[in-house]
Write a protein that binds this DNA or RNA. Structure first.
Lengths: 205, 205
DNA sequence: CGCAAGATTGAAGATATTCAAACAGCGTGG
DNA sequence: CCACGCTGTTTGAATATCTTCAATCTTGCG
């Protein structure tokens, strides 16, 4: 979808499925930096920064709307509320990145994976893509590993531990949260950083 | 400077010294999320998001200009170029967070610390706060550790290794980069993510 | 069926943590 | 002026967590 170093000419809006952003290191390893679910902009910032500093990749079965950069900025230029909404969207993005720094920096494997699952579950729930704690989850363990800064092997073992403790179920492509409070607790999860309750003002005073 | 959960009423602009943002975890540990040097905004985003999701702390001897939120937004409302510049500022912030996720997620201690030093050195250099590779560096090893997701002890040993290899010198309060290319190489450092060369257009088309 | 991708398992090893103690620099107060 | 306490740095040894490597198992699918 987007390649690092490339000049970006479009913005993409997720419609169906999952996409993620990643950075590749010289030594061959990869870090996934964010996941994106339907209704979310994937790369609103690329247009303004001119050059993409990372890649975007979509999982199979995903659909995204590709919007020419010029159209997006026309919207932003014409409408102050839309412009503000777009800015806030990128700020929430940044807030999630900050939490991810904490996640990979200061939590053990168990809490890390639990935290990632909490975040995705909550965001999916919010867009009503998951009925009562069950979600379509087409993320491989290797991708989970690259998102949490772990290896695929250790991710596998950690997932087993979470299953053993009856916190989650994770079959081929579906994740179900069995014990939401327990998962939140092991994840040290506080949803404040998702900023789901932005005050609806025309312009903050 | 800023406390988590607090409603923010001001923006702060660094004038002298160093400040950093941090998140505290329930288990008592801490993750530093960014450092801020003079000429940089520390928390432009807090005003828009309404509630701070993290703390900001300044090192001794720092000075910052506290600007009422309303004044900042008045500026943003009145001037399209300033508004754009502010947006871009927050986007570069986010880009740095992304690189930090990679840093703590996928680099070993040596590369992690080298990368952090590269970033700070380059940013300081850019604001001409460092003559020929020597900088005032009032960051303790414990803070370095909390920024890289390591322990203070291991940070100490890693710094010794960097010194032994003649990459840096780090005395009480001054950092000097002895071998810039070597440091960049061990850090896997690519400055693209700092977006120092944003095209100067009135509005990207 | 048979391939390919993903998941799982085991054992050995590396990297980083923990705990505890010693050491250095520095400002304060006796 | 020096002892004292404080903060920050350094060191060692034992331990934990996570990685690596390699093999096996499972599943979906042409």
């Amino acid at each position: 979808m987007v390649r690092e170093g490339q000049r970006s000419t479009d913005c993409t809006l997720m419609l169906r499925g999952l996409a993620f952003r990643q950075k590749l290191l010289r030594n061959g390893s990869r870090q996934i930096i964010s996941f994106h679910i339907p209704t979310e902009f994937v790369d609103l910032q690329n247009g303004l920064l001119g050059v993409a500093d990372h890649n975007v990749q979509s999982l199979e079965g995903s659909e995204a709307a590709v919007i020419p950069r010029s159209a997006v900025f026309q919207l932003a230029t014409d409408s102050a509320p839309i412009r503000l909404a777009m800015w806030i969207d990128t700020l929430i993005d940044a807030s999630i990145f900050r939490e991810w720094v904490v996640n990979v920096g200061r939590r053990d494997s168990r809490a890390r994976i639990a935290h990632l699952l909490c975040e995705l579950a909550l965001r999916l729930q919010r867009t009503s893509l998951g009925g009562n704690g069950s979600f379509d989850f087409p993320v491989t363990q290797e991708q989970l590993a690259d998102a949490t800064g772990l290896t695929a092997v250790h991710t596998n073992r950690t997932l087993q531990a979470l299953r053993r403790d009856k916190l989650i179920e994770l079959n081929s492509r579906t994740l179900t949260v069995l014990d939401w409070d327990g998962l939140k607790q092991t994840a040290d999860f506080d949803e404040l950083y998702l900023h789901q309750h932005i005050p609806h003002q025309p312009m903050p005073a």
